[in-house]
Design a protein around this nucleic acid. Structure first.
Lengths: 247, 247
DNA sequence: CAGTGGTCTAGACCACGAA
DNA sequence: TCGTGGTCTAGACCACTGG
């Protein structure tokens, strides 16, 4: 039935992947089409279910297949590649412009997470977390207000660092590997306190970048970056892009 | 033997991954250090070897560990990577949320580029370009005001399209491959005209995304996207990341 | 040679979705 | 209820590395 598992070389699960990919590429299986179930592949290919499962799981992770428990496995629709914006660490960005970066630590403490914050961390119940507020300057002009909450399981000594010497970004980068990131950008009007810190008129519109990072299934950091109005635009110039198409 | 496998929720292999990641973040295991072997983890954690293997294999695929057959498993050195924000086409984003997308074309014309615009296009002298203004709705609520200027060399029939049937994004995507993109995000206060179109109070802070695209060395489009305040946050949730380290 | 990771199996239990 | 994928186990054989 169909073609055999082809060739002789390579691990079995790779040959199963090749079998699937060949059937898609040859047009035998169209987009959206349902694949044979794991058990059917076990029978037709003569391999164990764990092997079939690994092959299908890896193809799903690569975005080629979509698997739905209780329903089946399907060929994923062709992915529209989206544009990417690169966010660099603020201190790198400033020094890359040839200017001087300076940080002022306004807060560095242990706090008990509010219910909202505990929810952002996906904690089942409230817990203490680190809280830091750092104001970043470019040549003595404030450009970014950085507020972080950090899961102490992944950086137990966060509260003891000197973040004027090393940025929080650099410290966390060295501490713990991040496997996932969430970004949300909105805009806010600077309230009087924020406006004072950033030396802006009250009510000035400011981009706000909200970021959460994961290590495995655990949330490591919950952050808010407020940029000083249009003084420092957020984003990347001239980022070479993989293969998006336009817009 | 360190801490136990923590918590109760989630698949076993995810808890094993969490165990490893926590030990790295807490500083118990330094970069370059050799991890306990699979068999040692089997004994100390009380899970089967296949489960340990899957956890380690996935962390290796994520660039966090390095595995060498016959030698052992090691903590990979930290690689500095910048965080990426994924920007999807507004219509895709709306339909992905299960809502209805509708577009209203407010302008579609040929204009002579102002000096500023000609500079953005990197034209040596001023030239005619296409200009379009499209308002995007999510279930009858305006969410994005899109203004584009398009280089007619790359889309000579841009002015003849019906952008209520196909988005400008989709049309341009089919027209010409983009090799480079520039993104700049700022925030503005909605002026009275913008506020009226987006049905927002005047002065409401709105994220503004400025985007230029290139095909080879030529600028193809110069665009401004104004998002309706915080009604539609800009950004991406859960973007899986290759192997960045933190932030 | 012993220890490592790489793979594979047969069988099992579970959560989920559709009928 | 039944079939789907999601996970887990115990045990096995292999290829590779180091001493």
């Amino acid at each position: 039935m169909m073609t055999a598992l082809s060739d002789t070389d390579g691990p079995l699960y790779e040959r199963v992947k090749g079998f699937i990919l060949r059937n898609i590429g040859a047009g035998a299986w169209a987009h959206g089409r349902r694949l044979p179930s794991e058990n059917e592949l076990v029978s037709s290919l003569g391999v164990s279910r764990m092997t079939v499962n690994r092959a299908l799981r890896e193809l799903a992770a690569a975005g080629i297949l979509v698997r739905i428990q209780g329903v089946g496995t399907f060929i994923a629709p062709p992915k529209p590649r989206s544009a990417l914006i690169e966010i660099r660490d603020i201190s790198e960005e400033i020094t890359a412009r040839g200017n001087r970066h300076r940080a002022e630590v306004l807060a560095l403490e242990r706090v008990t997470a509010t219910p909202d914050l505990a929810a952002a961390f996906e904690f089942p119940r409230t817990r203490p977390v680190f809280h830091s507020v750092v104001l970043h300057f470019e040549d003595d002009l404030p450009v970014q207000l950085e507020e972080r909450h950090v899961n102490p399981d992944f950086a137990p000594h966060y509260g003891d660092q000197d973040f004027t010497a090393m940025t929080t970004f650099e410290y966390l980068q060295a501490q713990t590997p991040v496997t996932e990131v969430e970004h949300i950008i909105t805009a806010i009007a600077a309230d009087s306190r924020t406006a004072a810190m950033l030396q802006l008129p009250r009510g000035e519109p400011c981009p706000l970048l909200y970021r959460r990072t994961w290590s495995g299934t655990a949330v490591v950091t919950v952050n808010r970056f407020i940029y000083a109005g249009s003084r420092i635009p957020l984003g990347s110039r001239y980022r070479p892009v993989d293969a998006p198409r336009s817009g």
